[in-house]
Design a protein around this nucleic acid. Sequence first.
DNA 1: TAAAAAAAGTGACTTAGGTCATGGTTGAAA
DNA 2: TTTCAACCATGACCTAAGTCACTTTTTTTA
Lengths: 211, 211
Amino acid sequence: MIRVLIAEDQSLVMQGLKMMIETDSELKVTGEARNGKEAVELCEKNWFDLAILDIRMPEMDGLEAAKIIRERWPEIKVLMLTTFNDDEYALEALRIGAHGYMLKDADADSLIKSIKNCLNGGLHIQGEVAAKVVPRLLEKENPSPKLHHTLTPRETDILRRIGEGKSNKEIAEELALSVGTVKNHISVLLDKLDLRDRTQLAIFAIRNGLV
Amino acid sequence: MIRVLIAEDQSLVMQGLKMMIETDSELKVTGEARNGKEAVELCEKNWFDLAILDIRMPEMDGLEAAKIIRERWPEIKVLMLTTFNDDEYALEALRIGAHGYMLKDADADSLIKSIKNCLNGGLHIQGEVAAKVVPRLLEKENPSPKLHHTLTPRETDILRRIGEGKSNKEIAEELALSVGTVKNHISVLLDKLDLRDRTQLAIFAIRNGLV
DNA sequence: TAAAAAAAGTGACTTAGGTCATGGTTGAAA
DNA sequence: TTTCAACCATGACCTAAGTCACTTTTTTTA
């Protein structure tokens, strides 16, 4: 029997995955976590063959959890689950050594196929992501993908507020800074994340679950 | 037996709902639609006691489907399903006469409760939405909530591109317009949606599934 | 089909957003 | 202790964004 751990904060998606997985008599969901921290804790107590991790989760996100699991229990297959076609995250997931990258809005069949394929040692990346990601991998470690892990607390804070649609003036008032300072932090954010303006920052913030 | 129709484009969520609903022996999912159009077509062929409609769907969204179902089959209970705490949509849903408003990230228990409550003739609005919405209802028809239904095709198009993080110049080039024209459309959008800048438009576009 | 209304388009003008050069503070390494 | 690096802060300056008054085109409807 293949033991599966699911880490997913949306209970509907959790139930859906569970149901789909257990239609196959070989597979059994023996662990359910609502964030990355819980997932790692479960791995400490029980053995799993496959971990399905949502990228966006509270407490500890799926990428961090994946990293820890890959380091400490390298035999466990890791499948990342995401809502969006975010190639930055896909790259990061691959770098960590995930065995698959699934989109939540894919149909049931291809999700099952991803799971099966992953268990058989395959690597599967769903969506248009693959087309964008593969060329990048071929250019050897590309230097651009600076993830939000490299952001300072101030920057993350400001990024979140941009994602809430606030103006520089509002952010400055809330944080007791001058607008100039806020603008400067934004310039740094734009540079780090390789984006162009606050609108793209807001989109990034939402896509990555900061808001 | 209570017959349930689900309209939901994300198959994972569909499976999750189905599983949860069918843990109760009284309930049975006898219809599955992947968009609003399919939902209405199913209603024409079969009878349902309850329709669970995702607000965000391709082809025809949940609000439109709800409207049609409420008009043509007023005995069917309608439960709206959404990812975000979007009070504009909640209001619109209530105006149409939906019997409930559920958030996808709620836990299984409260989702089941919403369904049960809805079947018993209750009205349930999940999340902080309720607190924002109820006062508005008491002020008699409030004039502000202009939904995206009132947007022209051009405006919707431009709104989507803003949600993709494009600049006015890029949008103008793609649509073969002057930047001035694009700016003007944006001014109209800001006015109609009661927002302040393109960042808030981008957030709106994402929250409402345009991108 | 004429009149009215809605939508699409334009460019001069104002303001908020973003860049850049610079300085202060803290903590760790030499 | 000094030097270096990372973070935070600031304001002068420039550009893209947004407003406004207006014209043209398309669609409604009387």
